[in-house]
């Protein structure tokens, strides 16, 4: 199931890539332009992705797997991915220190830590990483609502 979805997504992406590559000036074989190489890759990608999709749909799923059945622990994967997306969205809005605290504390809680330890680890890691990257290494991390 995963393979079929992934293969279809790659077909779509490589098709879109090929279409945008067609819009670039490809030049002639003697004077290849900026569209020449993308065109070649796009064509190769579409063919390979289609072949992959075909083989993925033809193959009988392995005997042990229950197609469609949720994998044990998949909820935690979604939670972790969600936390990552949340951090990216929060960062420019509330700034790094708060986003890091929320990210660490919430994710730890979701993954099974107690509230108290989630908060303590969240506070220390947010402060520690801000000091390390923002102060010592001079990375202009968004300071956000807390420090501005």
């Amino acid at each position: 199931m995963t393979e079929r979805l992934l293969a279809l997504a790659v077909v779509a992406a490589s098709g879109a890539y090929l279409l945008s590559a067609l819009a670039l000036p490809s030049g002639t074989p003697a004077r290849p332009g900026p569209g020449f190489f993308p065109l070649a890759i796009g064509a190769f990608g579409v063919v390979m992705a289609l072949a992959w999709t075909l083989s993925a749909f033809r193959r009988v799923p392995a005997a042990g797997g229950h197609p469609g059945a949720p994998v044990e622990g998949f909820g935690r994967v979604v939670a972790t991915a969600g936390a990552l997306v949340g951090f990216c969205l929060l960062l420019s809005w509330v700034g790094y220190p708060v986003a890091a605290l929320v990210f660490v504390a919430v994710l730890l809680r979701w993954l099974g830590a107690g509230w108290k330890s989630a908060l303590v680890i969240g506070l220390t890691s947010a402060a520690g990483s801000y000091y390390l990257f923002g102060v010592l290494l001079n990375v202009p991390l968004p300071r956000g609502i807390l420090l501005d």
Binding site: T80, A83, L91, A100, L108, L111, A113, S125, S129, F133
Partner: peptide, 21 residues
Amino acid sequence: QHVLATLVLLLCLVGAYSLNN
């Protein structure tokens, strides 16, 4: 492991951001 996993993710996030801000 969950602490380790969370901290590794935080490091990846800060590290990726710090490349080009």
